[in-house]
Computed example of a mutant assay.
Amino acid sequence: MTLRVGTRGSALALAQTKALAARFSGEVEIVEITTRGDVDRGSLAEIGGTGVFTSALRDALLDDRVDVIVHSMKDLPTAPHPGIALAAVARREDARDALCARDGLGFDDLPEGAKVGTGSPRRAAQLRRVRPDLEVVDIRGNVETRLARAQGPDADLDAVVLALAGLTRLGRQDAVTEVLGLGRFPTAPAQGALAVEVRDGDDAARRAVAPTDHLVSRACADAERLVLAGLEAGCSAPIAASAQVDDGMLFLTATVYAADGSQHLTSSHAYTLDGQSARELGDAAMDVAGRAVRELVDAGAMDLDRA
């Protein structure tokens, strides 16, 4: 049996899917699927970021046009989808954001009033919070298109901010002029992680992708996405969450921003682990996320203007 693996057709989606599919059991066939997010050039805020990169893939899976679908996990809606199961979360790449600027500039070296491009409301809010003098420009397009806005011969921006994981998977680390630290630029929930979904009850497909499941990456991504769910927010909301397992503990820090960067609220919690079984990691993710959400809500997170 050949495993049909569905993916978006962008260079990044194909690169990360092919690399992951090479670790599935048996023969695989890559099937390219066009999503709304690939053809609609509107901003994520305008077209409603939740599901725009995933719905068409899920439709193909449920219609039995493919057996497995691979997503950037940060694009997944947080609510479970009827008939679909999350079969694996691959070992996570470095989740941090990267500045790709003209002339090798770092973030603090950008001149006053510099134009910085991003399509992410979270990144836009962070840029405005840290450097209110910057002009944040909404951009869309594939990685090379966005890089060209700052580093191409016809560049019209001083810099763009992209996910380091995507640049790494495309072999474009050369474009990075600074990796942005989590202290000032915490990342999107599940950024850098890949999610593998199958039809609920398809045990053969689940077994085929099982070698790529990484329990710690799954737990960290789950903790971060539970923050999104608890705050009733979509994947394009100006919310950051970063979790990691270190020294026998699962740590989570979550931050909610006003869209203009004028306000933000942060909550950090930890859970002591006795081991790293799937059940314990899952319990830890739910515990830290639940405490972070309660603290953020009590502090007024739902009252921030996130639009």
Rank of each mutant, 00 (worst) to 15 (best):
P77Y: 02
A285D: 07
G119H: 05
A292L: 12
R36I: 01
R4T: 03
Q173L: 13
V176G: 08
F24Y: 13
D200F: 02
R102L: 13
D156K: 12
I33P: 10
A190F: 11
V31N: 02
L180P: 02
D305S: 01
A56I: 01
C235N: 10
L296G: 11
R306A: 07
M73R: 14
D67I: 14
Q126M: 15
G171M: 12
R92S: 12
R131A: 13
G26S: 01
A13L: 00
E295Y: 11
Q244D: 12
T255P: 09
D213A: 11
G117C: 08
T2N: 07
V68G: 11
P238T: 08
L3Q: 04
A223I: 11
V68F: 07
L180F: 01
L76R: 10
E144Y: 12
G166W: 13
E135P: 01
F185K: 08
S268C: 07
E112P: 03
Q244Y: 12
G234C: 07
A45N: 00
A223Y: 10
Q191N: 13
A13C: 00
A205E: 05
L215P: 03
F53C: 03
M286I: 02
L182D: 15
T2K: 09
L127H: 06
E32T: 13
A195L: 10
D174G: 08
S72W: 05
I47S: 07
D75C: 05
V256E: 05
A193Q: 04
Q276H: 05
A219S: 08
A221F: 02
L180C: 03
V227I: 08
A79P: 09
A240V: 12
S72H: 14
Q263H: 00
G26N: 03
R4Q: 09
G42K: 06
T145L: 09
G183H: 00
R225E: 08
E144L: 14
S236K: 10
R184W: 07
G181D: 14
R199K: 15
R91D: 15
V5Q: 09
T34C: 02
R140E: 04
R207S: 08
A292R: 11
K18E: 15
R4H: 10
R206A: 15
A85I: 00
V116W: 01
G117D: 08
L164K: 15
R218E: 14
A163T: 09
Q173K: 12
K115R: 14
A79E: 15
L170T: 09
A15S: 15
T255R: 15
R122L: 15
D64C: 01
P132Q: 05
G106P: 01
A125Q: 14
